[in-house]
Amino acid sequence: MTPPVDTVLFDIDGTLCEYRRPGNELLAASFEARDVTPFFGIEDYYARYDEFTATTDSADELRAACFAALAADRGYDPELGRAVAEAYTAERDHRNVRFLPGAREAVAALADEHRVGVVTNGAPAMQAQKLAGLDLDDAFEVVVHAGYDAPAKPDPEPFHRALDALDADPGSSVHVGNSLAADIAGARAAGLRSAWLDDGSVPDPEPDYVLDSMTDLASPPWRR
């Protein structure tokens, strides 16, 4: 018999919240601020983000290293990439985030009867600002910054670290996230059940639960 769920871990970006000002808009403004014709897109940045988590100590350092590498790959001076990254940092406000529909209510409802925590692929200072901007500073019993406190998701270690802090068992825990590659694969590797925020793609790996929106967690699917 499947044990009841007593612990819920959340991803942050794209699960609990999103930036009010999207990344593609910020990147365009950053190139404009440096009077440079854009030479890469926001998806290029996102695709290479994880390459730099182990060698940098903050989101700003990571972005600078990534933008420098993207510039060099395209035949530009890496320092030009760093200059664009500096402009991006000046434009970005990590507190300027908003809840995804139903996310605020989901956290509040689940916290009433579950241990709750966060496992996020994001720098500590940056993610702390987001939680503060959402007024969730004290909502979670543990926050693990994968890629900084532990290897990045989908490595199972950050999930195990969160569960150890909560004295929780993987078999009675669920991780909620939007990324199949990071959240769902990582939860599976760590022995947790997973709830995936559907983005319309074909799920691979297959999550245990599929959410049309975070509103679905008002009545958790593991109780239906």
Score class of each variant (00 low, 15 high):
80 L>M: 06
60 D>T: 13
81 G>I: 01
185 A>M: 03
172 S>D: 12
179 S>E: 13
132 A>G: 14
87 A>T: 11
20 R>F: 06
56 T>D: 03
18 E>L: 04
74 R>V: 14
217 L>Y: 14
32 E>F: 14
12 I>R: 01
76 Y>F: 11
140 F>D: 03
76 Y>G: 11
68 A>W: 00
83 A>I: 13
197 L>R: 06
108 A>W: 10
129 Q>K: 05
161 R>L: 10
152 A>G: 14
37 T>N: 07
33 A>N: 15
206 E>N: 00
121 N>Y: 15
86 E>G: 05
201 S>N: 04
54 A>G: 07
121 N>P: 15
203 P>C: 04
223 R>V: 09
95 R>P: 13
104 R>M: 11
147 G>V: 05
37 T>S: 10
3 P>V: 15
187 A>D: 06
130 K>N: 14
194 S>P: 10
212 D>M: 12
145 H>N: 08
62 L>R: 08
34 R>K: 15
182 A>S: 15
40 F>W: 06
195 A>T: 13
115 R>V: 07
40 F>K: 01
154 P>W: 12
9 L>V: 13
204 D>Y: 02
11 D>K: 07
193 R>V: 02
28 A>I: 01
184 I>R: 02
201 S>Y: 01
76 Y>T: 12
13 D>C: 10
184 I>T: 08
53 T>I: 04
207 P>A: 02
199 D>P: 03
84 V>K: 07
110 L>C: 10
92 R>F: 07
27 L>G: 05
25 E>I: 12
205 P>H: 02
55 T>I: 08
68 A>C: 00
136 L>T: 13
63 R>G: 12
204 D>Q: 00
125 A>D: 05
115 R>M: 03
89 T>W: 02
137 D>A: 12
24 N>S: 05
11 D>Y: 14
6 D>V: 10
43 E>G: 08
19 Y>I: 01
197 L>K: 06
35 D>S: 15
57 D>I: 05
103 A>K: 00
169 D>T: 12
3 P>R: 06
113 E>H: 09
51 E>L: 00
75 G>H: 04
144 V>F: 08
120 T>F: 12
93 D>G: 14
8 V>L: 06
166 L>P: 09
16 L>I: 09
53 T>D: 04
69 A>C: 00
92 R>C: 09
56 T>G: 08
